[in-house]
Amino acid sequence: MQAVADSDAALVERCRSDDHRAFDQIVVLYKDRVLNYVRGMISDRDDADDIAQQTFVKAYVGLRSFQNRASLHTWILRIATNLCIDYRRRRGRPDRRPVYLGATGDDAQAAALEIVDTRCDPAQAYARQEMSLLTRNAIEALPDRLRTVLILHDMEGLPYEEIARIVRCPLGTVKSRLFHARMNVREQLLPYLRGDVLAQDGESR
């Protein structure tokens, strides 16, 4: 982790000396993580891609004032978070599209939520994918403060401490928001949880 921080600091210094290749390296290092996060936050794939790119443009412009108090990764994700929240506020409430895979064939969402499934049972693969899409809709309905924490933790795998720095709140608040986000998603998925998809999946393990 220290090595990453050191290399980040060196890259930032090179950027400040107008070394454009150094900024290219920063983009290459973090583009996948930023894109994943933004796609989790914003359902429209094109808009998400646009905001992921905007994140790096903002980072470039603001890099001269970056003071290494947070890691570069945390700082970039904070920019992405602000852009996503700003986007959602401008757009009003999220566009909650009903998702029934196969019926509507929403390729963009399906591709974004493809499940790693090593088993060959098409019915189970379909059920798992459908459950993921339903989960995605449930996340989409969460308030910003809960959704941000849930995606950063459960989808991006960030520790509590880094999330606290990104969303600028105490550690206890992160834990609490994460708990409420999970309970909220569960509440929305209760009909499915009690019905079939995950129950079948659980039995098959």
């Binding site: 996948d32 994943n36 790119q53 493809e114 790693v116 993921s132 989960t135 459960d154 569960r186």
Partner: peptide, 23 residues
């Protein structure tokens, strides 16, 4: 049990990779 299943489901979502055109 529900929370464990939901979390496992979230963690199993495959990460996308930015295209070459991103940079």
């Amino acid at each position: 049990s529900d929370l464990e299943r939901i979390t496992a489901n979230l963690r199993s979502i495959e990460h996308v990779q930015a295209s070459d055109a991103f940079l």
